[in-house]
């Protein structure tokens, strides 16, 4: 395993699209980084440049101190897991996991031993003689991970590995990826568009939008101190309430809006527009003056009018320089 240093990475495609404008990041040895952002934000392109599958227009990537510029993918000593698993259909599960060792001409005994070990960690030891087309999506993704983990590369890249799985399986594998990553101490860069996945898995979250890093920080910090309205809106199960006043932008999370069904001096009067039940709470859309305000309530709001209070310690303030 190794640390990775990315300096001013840029990618402009031949058709003039600037996919990645300026990407700099240092990842510590053993760290789990999640790059997250909406589709088209440049996160996958960044990952592919690190893998060497896409040539960077400019910038440098240093892996364990070694400059990867001009180094072929196969010589980078990285492993990658793909969204669509990318398993070799003509080989068994064993053959798939053994492939990276085979092409390195490792001995038969060594291959058997390593594959058996990683299969045990991933709980796929009973599947080794099966062929990929007989496996379920979750099993396939485990095999793909086994193939990536078996040779302990310097860096582990994952491109939306859970996106093709159903919600339950996603939850299960999320924890498992973290467990295995910690166990092996694998430096990992993980790309997803799912903010919840990013929050729950990452040591550090890198939020991207329009080819630029918006913020790189721990999940707690991203949630509590978002660097700008984009980050604030992107995280949280409900989008943050955001409004402009003068040269400033204000934001407050729906769950932090305090409300009363009776009149309170100095609070903002708001009309209740609609309400949705979401399992453990109610989400209400209200209108205070011209602004729509979302809020959370533990029970259904009976009155048509509520009075809102925004506790100053919960309000985020940014300069309007966008």
């Amino acid at each position: 395993m190794a640390e990775i240093k990315i300096e001013n990475l840029k990618k402009t495609f031949r058709n003039g699209v600037e996919a990645v404008k300026d990407f700099s990041l240092e990842v510590a040895d053993g760290e789990f980084i999640v790059i997250v952002g909406p589709s088209g934000c440049g996160k996958s392109t960044t990952l592919r440049m690190i893998a060497g599958l896409e040539k960077a227009t400019s910038g440098r990537i240093l892996l364990g101190g070694r400059d990867l510029t001009g180094v072929d993918t196969k010589d980078r000593d990285i492993a990658m897991v793909f969204q669509n698993y990318a398993l070799y259909e003509n080989m068994t599960v064993f053959g798939n996991i053994a492939f990276p060792l085979k092409v390195r001409k490792e001995s038969k005994e060594e291959i058997e031993e390593k594959v058996a070990k990683i299969a045990q960690v991933l709980k796929i030891d009973s599947l080794l003689q099966r062929r990929p087309k007989t496996l379920s999506g979750g099993e396939k993704q485990r095999v793909a991970m086994g193939r990536a983990l078996v040779r302990q590369p310097k860096l582990f890249l994952m491109d939306e590995p859970l996106s093709n799985l159903d919600a339950r399986l996603r939850l299960e594998l999320r924890d498992e990826i973290r467990r295995i990553q910690k166990k092996l101490g694998a430096t990992t860069i993980y790309v997803t568009h799912d903010q919840l996945e990013a929050m729950t898995m990452a040591d550090r979250v890198v939020v991207m939008n329009k080819g630029m890093i918006q913020q790189a920080a721990s999940p707690e910090e991203i949630y509590q101190r978002p660097a700008n309205p984009f980050v604030a809106k992107f995280f949280g199960s409900l989008p943050m309430n955001i409004w402009k006043a003068g040269r400033k932008i204000y934001g407050i999370r729906p769950e932090e809006v305090v409300f009363s069904q009776e009149f309170k001096e100095g609070w903002h009067e708001a009309r209740v527009l609609e309400q949705h039940f979401s399992g453990n709470s109610w989400m209400a859309a209200t209108e205070a003056g011209d602004e729509r305000v979302l809020l959370c309530s533990d029970r259904r709001i009976e009155s048509m009018t509520v009075w809102l209070c925004f506790p100053p310690e919960s309000v985020h303030i940014w300069e309007d320089d966008l």
């Binding site: 599958l53 993918t73 000593d77 990285i78």
Partner: peptide, 9 residues
């Protein structure tokens, strides 16, 4: 691409 990252020539 997977084969490339697996180190295959």
């Amino acid at each position: 691409e997977a084969a490339k990252t697996d180190g295959a020539s």
